[in-house]
Amino acid sequence: MTIDSNEVVLDVQGLTVDIRTPRGVLHVVRDISLQVKRGETLCIVGESGCGKSITSLSMMGLLPKTATRNSRVFNFLGEDIARADKHRINDLRGNRMAMIFQEPMTALNPAYTIGDQLTEHYRHHKHASAEEARTRAVALLEKVGIASAAERLGQYPHQLSGGLRQRVMIAMALMCGPELLIADEPSTALDVTIQAQILRLLADLQAELGIAMVLITHDLGVVARIANRVAVMYAGQIVEEGLTKDIFASPQHPYTRGLISCIPIPGRTIPGGKLGTIPGVVPSLIGEIKGCAFKDRCASAQERCSGEIPLRKTALGQQWRCILEHEEIAR
């Protein structure tokens, strides 16, 4: 299979998502921009509450009714889906764009068999017969490493382990052969051994099928194993973005440095010793946020952090939002 690694599958520029709440407007995603090319894995990483999951839901058009999405550019394979009607979005979603949700036990319907849930949207999008859909489902269950795949089709979600349910979710996302796969914390609810298996499976399938993948996670260990590029998200904004090797070798934003300092390092982190932490909490996103949202937690904060924050870039394309140049940031 020939993969055009320069083809941009998803191009989002200036994305904002606001949610109306009784306390005011929640600015959960604030002017973010990102691109994902065919065969590439982009990891969006950050603490809980930073807007990662809402970003993924906005890409799929699955935001709650109280949410408003705006953007300068929102293209999928060159098509402006921001202006597409509901029928067109429904045609793309689950077909050419697919999502693996965070918790398979709640994403799968307990009242329907695995087979029914795997084949329903395939028959709808591909106008396939029940036998064709069943054959496709069995083949994909086998591809994701599920033994006795044909027998599994008659089972219900509660009859499967967490790891098997997650594999079913991956197979379901791949049923229609999508060109964009969004995975929201796909290994969070699994034990460490199963996590590694799921991540390896996703990486193998992505490389084999040439899918553009957006992986949402808070685990930098996951990022190091699977990502081509990383977007670090904080308080609804992407504060740093670049190649994975550059982010880990030379993090530029103080928040990125804080996240990396929290990773235990074999041979250097003392067993039973204190792990790194970032003091403070993510600020409220209700109302206006002036300047850098990280300033109250940052060791390098200055008065001018309350003003306009420039976007800085390196010659290799790594970019970050901070008033300080690389050499000025406190380590």
Rank of each mutant, 00 (worst) to 15 (best):
330 A>L: 15
4 D>K: 06
124 H>P: 09
306 S>Y: 08
206 Q>I: 09
197 Q>V: 05
233 M>I: 02
225 R>F: 08
136 R>V: 06
200 R>E: 15
326 H>P: 10
230 V>D: 01
316 L>M: 11
233 M>D: 01
315 A>V: 11
21 T>M: 05
59 M>A: 14
257 R>T: 11
63 L>F: 13
260 I>E: 02
145 G>I: 01
243 L>E: 12
160 L>C: 04
135 T>S: 14
130 A>Q: 12
94 G>I: 04
72 R>Q: 08
200 R>T: 13
178 P>L: 05
186 P>T: 09
44 I>G: 02
291 G>T: 12
222 V>D: 03
137 A>W: 07
14 G>P: 03
157 P>L: 11
238 I>D: 03
172 M>P: 14
51 G>C: 03
245 K>S: 06
34 L>V: 13
186 P>A: 07
56 S>P: 10
311 L>F: 09
167 R>I: 06
12 V>G: 07
298 C>Q: 01
195 Q>H: 07
293 A>N: 00
119 T>I: 11
282 V>M: 05
328 E>F: 07
326 H>I: 12
311 L>A: 07
126 K>Q: 11
154 G>N: 10
235 A>D: 04
326 H>E: 09
91 D>M: 13
6 N>Q: 12
126 K>D: 02
24 G>L: 11
234 Y>H: 10
84 A>G: 11
74 F>H: 05
187 S>T: 15
154 G>C: 02
119 T>V: 07
329 I>S: 06
320 W>Y: 07
62 L>D: 02
2 T>N: 13
136 R>A: 01
191 D>R: 15
40 E>Q: 12
288 E>C: 09
34 L>F: 15
73 V>N: 09
13 Q>K: 12
85 D>K: 13
36 V>I: 07
23 R>S: 14
67 A>V: 08
157 P>Y: 09
18 D>E: 14
220 L>N: 05
132 E>P: 03
185 E>F: 06
41 T>E: 02
97 M>Y: 11
158 H>F: 15
62 L>W: 09
244 T>G: 12
114 I>G: 00
129 S>K: 06
98 A>W: 00
273 G>P: 03
287 G>C: 09
275 L>F: 04
113 T>V: 03
206 Q>K: 12
205 L>M: 13
183 A>F: 08
231 A>L: 10
128 A>M: 13
10 L>G: 03
73 V>P: 02
35 Q>E: 15
204 D>T: 14
202 L>V: 05
161 S>N: 14
147 A>F: 06
252 Q>N: 08
329 I>H: 03
244 T>W: 00
150 A>N: 13
295 K>Y: 06
108 L>H: 01
298 C>M: 04
265 I>E: 14
65 K>F: 12
105 M>I: 04
242 G>E: 01
142 E>S: 14
66 T>S: 15
150 A>G: 09
116 D>R: 10
292 C>M: 07
141 L>S: 08
273 G>D: 12
131 E>Q: 10
213 M>I: 01
88 R>I: 03
194 I>M: 00
110 P>N: 15
261 S>L: 02
36 V>R: 00
303 E>F: 01
143 K>R: 14
232 V>K: 05
153 L>F: 10
52 K>T: 06
109 N>C: 10
88 R>L: 04
117 Q>N: 08
240 E>S: 13
158 H>W: 11
221 G>T: 00
140 L>Y: 07
38 R>W: 05
201 L>A: 06
176 C>R: 04
296 D>T: 13
119 T>E: 00
